[in-house]
Design a protein around this nucleic acid. Structure first.
Length: 285
DNA sequence: CACCATGTTCCTTG
DNA sequence: CCAAGGAACATGGT
């Protein structure tokens, strides 16, 4: 589920609810969800620690924990299917729970079907990330500088987290559609106009998704019922609204919403790319 | 059974 | 050095 927008929405949801909360219990149900730290160390370090702050960096959630006078990081990456939910119940809607934090009255659950998500106690991966696309400093010059002189296809380049932080497979295709750039264009061939459109398109698709409440429809069932439950929505209504917003992703063979020509799918770096052959025609220049 | 999947990392080949 | 491709990780949906 998670690209930058989902992680951002999740961070905004959790930050105020976790602030100041103290971890009373740590359960590691699957040690594969931990990276570079043994379960015993993980538990010993986090037990009795407080949540101090939470920030998103790319697709990472960076929690700053506090224990006594010392602060330390807790870094979470959701992988493909990771979810974090805060629940009052003892049995949250988590069928594949791998790590749980007992907070006294609530439980923070890390649920991850495919188990590509990771938790760790160092923030080093954050330092390798490229610029944050939604920050004011993300100018055309910054984007150009980040792309460098690479001949790599722009779609593949956008998935590189050291180039720009937080763009995933869905928004790479979506941004290139809005920028009217063919996904196979060598990135160094992009002219000033295209770079300008690309910058705008990236910021547009990401911020629209955040505004929407996230792309893979997020659902807050909490405010109505338990008050603290959070998970990705499943309703057909949510999915419908979500899919309506996508212009090309997962729409192979369907008419382009702009010109009506069938959307095409191709594979790049082992992943699907969707584009409109008419609106995103030329791959040179 | 085959193929696909919102992510990252590592390795090999050209 | 760069780019591309594949595999690995693990599980579920179609």
């Amino acid at each position: 589920m998670p690209e930058l927008p989902e992680v951002e929405v999740l961070a905004r949801h959790l930050a105020p609810r976790l602030a100041g909360k103290r971890i009373q219990r740590v359960r590691v149900l699957d040690p594969r969800s931990l990276s570079r730290v043994k379960p015993a160390t993980f538990k010993r370090t986090l037990i009795h620690a407080h949540f101090q702050s939470l920030r998103r960096h790319g697709k990472y959630l960076l929690f700053t924990m506090r224990k006594g006078r010392a602060s330390f990081p807790l870094l979470v990456h959701l992988g493909m299917t990771g979810r974090l939910s805060l629940s009052r119940n003892k049995t949250p809607l988590a069928r594949h729970s791998t790590v749980e934090f007992g907070l006294g009255g609530a439980t923070l659950v890390f649920d991850d079907v495919r188990r590509f998500g990771r938790m760790r106690l160092d923030a080093s991966p954050v330092h390798r990330l490229g610029p944050e696309p939604l920050e004011t400093g993300f100018t055309v010059e910054k984007l150009q500088q980040a792309l460098g002189e690479s001949r790599q296809a722009i779609k593949v380049r956008l998935l590189d987290q050291t180039v720009v932080a937080g763009i995933g497979n869905i928004y790479a295709s979506e941004a290139l559609f809005h920028a009217r750039i063919h996904p196979c264009t060598p990135s160094r061939n992009l002219n000033q106009t295209q770079l300008c459109r690309l910058r705008t398109a990236i910021r547009r698709v990401l911020s629209e998704a955040i505004r929407f409440g996230s792309t893979v429809p997020l659902e807050f069932s909490g405010p109505k019922s338990s008050g603290e439950l959070f998970y990705y929505g499943q309703s057909a209504d949510d999915r419908g609204r979500y899919e309506e917003r996508l212009r090309v992703y997962d729409r192979e063979g369907n008419p382009c919403r702009r010109c009506g020509v069938p959307v095409e799918r191709t594979a790049q770096a082992g992943r699907s790319t969707y584009f409109c052959p008419c609106c995103q025609g030329a791959q040179d220049q």
